[in-house]
Design a protein around this nucleic acid. Structure first.
Length: 267
DNA sequence: AGAAATACCCGTACGC
DNA sequence: TGCGTACGGGTATTTC
């Protein structure tokens, strides 16, 4: 579930906890969690590396080490927890990084979708991503031009990380509702005014998510408050906060999709 | 080539 | 109660 705001929240919290520590050793408990390099190389390369900075690109968390970057993608059920060194690992822990301050960072991931990469060439992994929606190069004009450069439904296009980086199923439904656009609208039919609305909606909903420390759904992700402020996501049959019409749930590109049939017309 | 469908996972909810 | 099945979520891979 973690999308851009949740990963941003992780990055901010972990930065204060981790920077300055040295990774003493790694315990890989589920081999496929490690995308690259081999487990033997990974353990050898990461041992002794000091954590210089913690940041984010799209939904990737980046631990900037002295000689490498450790990229972490939480995918669906991934979670990061810092525990005291004497606390036992938990059932779904996939990777443990033991730190010089006698704690360890646990990558816990029930569904085993999450991945980590240790690399000195992060661009090989991050290079295909589209623009960061909160950065200055993501403008309404850019969005309008690139919506028209393709002919796809809005919802799957917004979920495409090579188009815009960081939106997932929740924030996509939310921003389409704010912009009053139907998820099945063809991207090349969006007017300049609609593109400007969508641009504004994307930025505002992501900032709201960050401000509320992300969204916690079911057991996934902890501590966020944004789930209490969803406009459409997970609110099938409940009233639209704008007009009171019952929210409908449909399937778009095999994804659960929530719309207000009154606010979001399909032209 | 670009877009759509499928595979990867497993805890939970639901139907019988 | 217990069993079987559908579902969801992000993205790499496969298929169209």
């Amino acid at each position: 579930m973690p999308e851009l705001p949740e990963v941003e929240t992780f990055a901010r919290a972990l930065k204060t906890e981790l920077v300055g520590n040295t990774i003493l050793s790694a315990d890989l408990r589920w081999a496929r969690t490690l995308a690259t390099p081999s487990p033997a190389q990974f353990k050898k390369q990461i041992a002794g590396q000091k954590i210089v900075d913690v940041s984010r690109r799209a939904k990737y968390l980046i631990l900037n080490l002295e000689d490498y970057n450790l990229l972490i993608h939480l995918r669906m059920s991934g979670d990061l927890i810092i525990r005291g060194g004497k606390i036992k690992p938990e059932k779904h822990d996939r990777l443990l990084l033991y730190l010089s301050n006698h704690t360890y960072l646990a990558f816990n991931d029930t569904r085993k979708f999450g991945r980590v990469w240790l690399t000195d060439r992060p661009e090989d992994i991050l290079g295909k991503l589209g623009p960061e929606p909160l950065e200055k190069d993501f403008t309404a004009q850019w969005l309008f031009e690139n919506l028209h450069a393709r002919k796809r439904y809005l919802k799957p296009l917004l979920l495409d990380q090579s188009f815009i980086a960081g939106l997932g199923n929740i924030y996509t439904d939310e921003c389409l509702h704010i912009a009053k656009l139907h998820p099945l609208t063809s991207s090349n039919n969006v007017t300049k005014e609609q593109a400007a609305s969508l641009h504004k909606a994307i930025r505002s909903v992501l900032k709201e998510g960050i401000r509320r420390n992300g969204a916690s759904i079911d057991w996934a992700y902890r501590g966020g408050e944004f789930q209490n402020y969803f406009r459409v996501y997970g609110r099938e049959g409940k009233p639209c906060p704008v007009c009171g019409t019952k929210i409908q749930k449909l399937t778009v590109g095999q994804r659960g999709t929530h719309v207000c049939p009154n606010c979001q017309h399909l032209r």
